[in-house]
Amino acid sequence: MLAQDVGRLGAAFSSLGPAIAAICLFRIIPIALHAQGWRSVMAESDRPGLLPTLGIRWIGESVNTLLPVGQVGGDVVRARLMAASRPRPDGAGAEVAVDFLLGIVSQALFALMGVAALMAVAPGIAASAQVLAGTAVLVGLAAFLAMLQRRGFFSGLAGMAGRLMGERASSGLAQGAAGLDREVARIMADRPRMRRGLAWRLLGWLSHVAEAWILLAALGLPAGLDTALALESLAWAVRSIAFLIPGAIGAQEGGIVAIGLLLGLPTELALALALAKRAREIVVCAPGLAAWLVMERRGIKGLLKSGGAP
């Protein structure tokens, strides 16, 4: 029985070769849409083009995906890269902080859409209730982060650091944190900017649905948009909730299999989907890590100014 299951899994995964290539190429579209969302919160007078922003976004996503950084280290990296690429670097950290918040809020909306799709596809509300708790955690996290941003998140962190480091050592840190909080508040007060950023970020999440649709179609499974939406959005929700696990290894695969079972997919096909997604992450993100290491070794500013950034 085990040998038969392994054989079916191997056959299903091997049939996904062209589909994996397709989703690797398609990945540029979600990254570009998320990059445009990030650009939307930047000041127009100091806003880089889409291509350099896309390259930095790709590197940040690669760091978050493949390194044990709690899925926030990549955001620190892209703030550093963006600051090095602009004449006025002061606002880069605040822009990344606001973009991070918009990413969580838009993903929470995406997850709610997935729950609605699951309720439409899966038999009975009970099946949807099994993933509703996880989605509620994501929605609660979005609300909590928004509250912290409004109350001076970075000043609060600096205050905690000050209690450990001593007043003298932390005075400069506190001033920098206060300035960062003011810049974040200034961006968040610009409602048109925030709405544009949120819209692009949500569009970026929705574009991920095509990835699930391509994989489902390649396996010969019903590839309705509602099924693809439920699978993709809730799989991303599981990954985000498991942010403490490096690369969400195991959690992502388990989440995809569990959601696939709720959607009526055979276990081996759901696991093949999970493995295909992991393969796509390695193919797309490993070059991003390599590009980052090259930039750090040769000098970020030199490469960006000479056009050597991805």
Rank of each mutant, 00 (worst) to 15 (best):
L2Q: 00
V6S: 01
F13L: 15
S15A: 03
A22Y: 01
C24N: 14
H34I: 14
W38K: 08
R39N: 01
R39D: 00
R39I: 06
E44W: 11
G49H: 10
L50T: 09
L54K: 00
W58G: 10
V63K: 07
L66V: 04
V76G: 09
V76L: 13
L81C: 04
L81V: 10
G91M: 07
L102S: 15
S106K: 12
Q107R: 15
L109S: 10
L109G: 03
F110H: 07
M113C: 08
A122C: 15
P123F: 00
I125L: 09
V131F: 12
T135E: 07
T135Q: 08
L141S: 12
A143H: 08
L157E: 05
A158I: 06
S170Q: 11
S171H: 08
A178L: 09
A185P: 12
A189Y: 04
R191H: 00
R201E: 13
L202C: 10
L202P: 14
L206C: 15
A210M: 01
W213K: 10
L219V: 05
G220R: 06
A223T: 11
L225P: 09
L225E: 02
T227M: 03
A230T: 05
G247M: 08
A251M: 05
Q252H: 14
G254R: 04
V257Y: 00
I259W: 02
L263Q: 04
T267A: 07
E268H: 10
L269M: 07
A272F: 00
A276Q: 04
A276L: 01
C285F: 11
A286L: 13
P287H: 10
L289K: 03
